[in-house]
Design a binder for these strands. Structure first.
Lengths: 362, 362
DNA sequence: CCATTTCGTAAATAGAACTTACAAACATGA
DNA sequence: TCATGTTTGTAAGTTCTATTTACGAAATGG
């Protein structure tokens, strides 16, 4: 490790403080970060020169002393291109500024399942189209897609679009002159919950949609696993009493219990749709219990259609989870819905990935 | 982050390289670490002055050029005191040198369950006795105990010895003039598997003894969880079909299925003891499947009585685990017994904790 | 025996953060 | 009104770390 690595760390520390605490003076920053006023001033000077931070004039006076000059990340002048390829019916591209607001949005219909070439061309076109709508400097491109994705942005497998070993990151970087980050959709969503939702650094997010996936944060860092397949929880068998047949051919996969299409189908067929939801929630609790026990996760976030997840489903999941894990403390596991809407979590996740990769903001 | 943090990192890097690769020259170290020869020489000089590293004379000549002077960690001249409080019948203390060899060993009977004062006094006496047997400089004291232990060495709960909020680390540091590290037994064992066993940085170790616990490494670092209770997997309910009654009052806890006393009892009572083992192995597989899916762990290590775990039990666990997780790749999960004997894993874990805390060696 | 290679270190340089010092700009109280 | 104290931001000098450059020592090999 070299001194310049420490410098980069401190630079990120300054940006992270500004991002989460909002505009403040150099002296405030020094107090928050623990660095000296001199060092902080130097770092801010560098960030000003790089156009990442801007001065916002003096603060309205509060006490004695020279008035402070407020500095902040250039939240309006920097933008991020985010792509959400996890939608059931469409692929979405968006331009976000650093407040997290969506400044432009593009959606294209999802290509037919398995048509891998069409999917690739479609994504490249969507990326170009979205990027062209940026109205300010683009910090980077974040892409969140279902499937197993390596840390250098190669989609190892993505069954529904039919990709195997597609180097999505380098393909996009060839076309767009900006750094590109690619990751799994549920993993991205988990990062969003941490960076933009203020949750603790140890959390599991379960994304329930066409499929079921999860994202895991340990000590504030995304976990990718030994084979980049962390979060692939959809085809884990849950329970010891069979269950609905899954598309993969087996019985009792979590995805067979929870995936939205299957769930809606079973609800429509049943007399008592509440009991279908209760069963599904229980299954989630059963699957999560060993994970909670092993990792001591205290924050579990669900993402998916609110009309399905909120209420009976959530209650059953919490109750099952608590009944199946013995917490040695009074403080029990929390299970909750994502604070972000189901339609923007993944976009925000792609956004958060760029924040992390480019500015070191988590 | 300050420059001296980077320095400390590089110091640890040098030590880590020496520890794992063995004695080598300063020039070799420079090549291995990526630092320059000059910097490496400087760091080695510091470590020599601190008495952590020693010169071992010139290397037998291999080619042209000035002969290299070999340096190595002072493997014989540094010792570690390790305490294993996880035994069913006794508490063990040991002095290890940096080769990992046990140089002295002390064992005292375990106090009666729940007698917390006797347990505390006994442990303090054991620590003093063990430390007095060290024949060289003691780097630190590592303690591995069952129960939930905070990162600053307070035993939050340890049901069988009846401890609640016992500040074990500060108690021991008052008595012994050496740094003390305290952690959960299974967590320590997991670290041993990584530091001393050469496994990958993402692994789960399941320790099966009087109770059942686990230790989890993510990216080469021990995971403690939000409430320091990571690994507490013993009282997770497994399966949806009941199961043996557990000491905690519920049915189907993993511990009720797997704990050694219960297992031996059921085996003695059954006609077919193999089927008892098979059932138990299956239960372990059922419990681990969601963990493997979520974390993409590819290395699972079991620690416990070999006569029980090797064979039918292990085979059933692997088979169940593979059947219940759908690996997107050909490369399946490995499940294996610990390379270390059941009697020394935890001691080695306590040892590894000291290596990590004191020298930055992982 | 001399060119070549490799090792370890000395000296000088560049980068990063620190301490010290100071000017600017404000509030407050005599 | 004016001296005093407070806070901010920066300039100058110091310390620490790692680098580049250079060199002597000690071996091999033609």
């Amino acid at each position: 490790m070299l001194p310049e690595h420490a410098r980069a760390h401190n630079r990120a520390l300054v940006l992270q403080t500004l991002f989460h605490e909002g505009a403040m003076s150099r002296a405030d920053l020094a107090r928050e970060t623990g660095l000296t006023r001199v060092t902080t001033s130097d770092l801010v000077g560098e960030l000003l020169a790089d156009g990442i931070v801007v001065e916002q004039g003096v603060r309205a006076q509060t006490g004695p002393g020279k008035p402070a000059i407020l500095v902040d990340i250039d939240r309006e002048g920097l933008q991020v291109v985010a792509l959400d390829l996890s939608g059931a019916t469409e692929h979405v591209g968006a331009v976000l500024d650093l407040t997290g607001a969506v400044r432009a949005r593009v959606a294209v219909p999802r290509p037919a399942d398995g048509d891998s070439d069409a999917a690739r061309e479609g994504v490249l076109a969507l990326a170009a189209d979205t990027a062209s709508r940026a109205t300010a400097r683009v910090l980077g491109v974040g892409v969140a897609a279902p499937g197993v994705i390596s840390r250098d942005g190669v989609v190892l497998t993505a069954p529904n679009v039919g990709w195997h070993g597609v180097p999505l990151r380098s393909l996009l970087e060839e076309q767009i002159s900006a750094p590109v980050v690619v990751a799994n959709d549920a993993n991205a969503a988990a990062l969003a919950e941490y960076t933009l939702g203020g949750s603790s650094g140890d959390l599991v997010l379960v994304k329930i949609g066409r499929g079921v996936g999860s994202g895991l944060l340990v000590r504030g860092e995304l976990t990718r696993g030994g084979r980049d397949a962390a979060g692939e929880i959809g085809h884990v068998t849950v329970g010891t009493d069979g269950g609905p047949r899954c598309a993969c051919g087996r019985e009792g996969c979590l995805e067979a219990w929870l995936a939205v299409p299957a769930l809606r189908e079973r609800m429509a067929a049943a007399d008592d749709s509440e009991s279908v939801l209760r069963d599904a929630g229980e299954r989630l609790g059963i699957a999560l219990a060993p994970v909670v026990g092993t990792l001591d996760i205290d924050d579990i976030v669900l993402s998916g259609p609110v009309d399905l997840l909120d209420g009976t489903f959530l209650d059953a999941a919490v109750a099952t989870l608590r009944a199946r894990t013995l917490s040695p403390f009074a403080d029990p596991v929390r299970v909750r819905l994502s604070a972000h809407g189901d339609d923007v979590v993944v976009l925000r996740g792609a956004f958060a990935m760029v924040l992390d990769a480019r500015l070191g903001i988590r």
